[in-house]
Amino acid sequence: MLLIKCPWCGERAETEFSYGGEAGIKRPLEPDKLTDEEWADYLFNRSNPKGAHHELWNHAGGCRRWFEAERDTVTYRIAVTREL
């Protein structure tokens, strides 16, 4: 069970959090101007790296705030968490 540092509440057990996947995926401002390929890339394609991963977590069982973490997907070590 991971130990995750909520930027607002401090270190808490993983069971208090929900995972939000890759961070930094910006919703296109004008979706109707995108091709189907571009829209699909936003919608489905993910970098899914083996190694450092910028990802979103939500302190669902606590302050309910979303924040970003940089976690290694092999060692699971969390280098840093920060407010959005």
């Binding site: 890339d41 489905f44 394609n45 993910r46 997907t73």
Partner: peptide, 18 residues
């Protein structure tokens, strides 16, 4: 599990999470 890693070698991204 490593499909995305191989895809990256070919310059692609996949609709996949491991």
């Amino acid at each position: 599990g490593h499909a995305s890693v191989l895809a990256e070698m070919a310059g692609m991204r996949l609709p996949i999470e491991s």
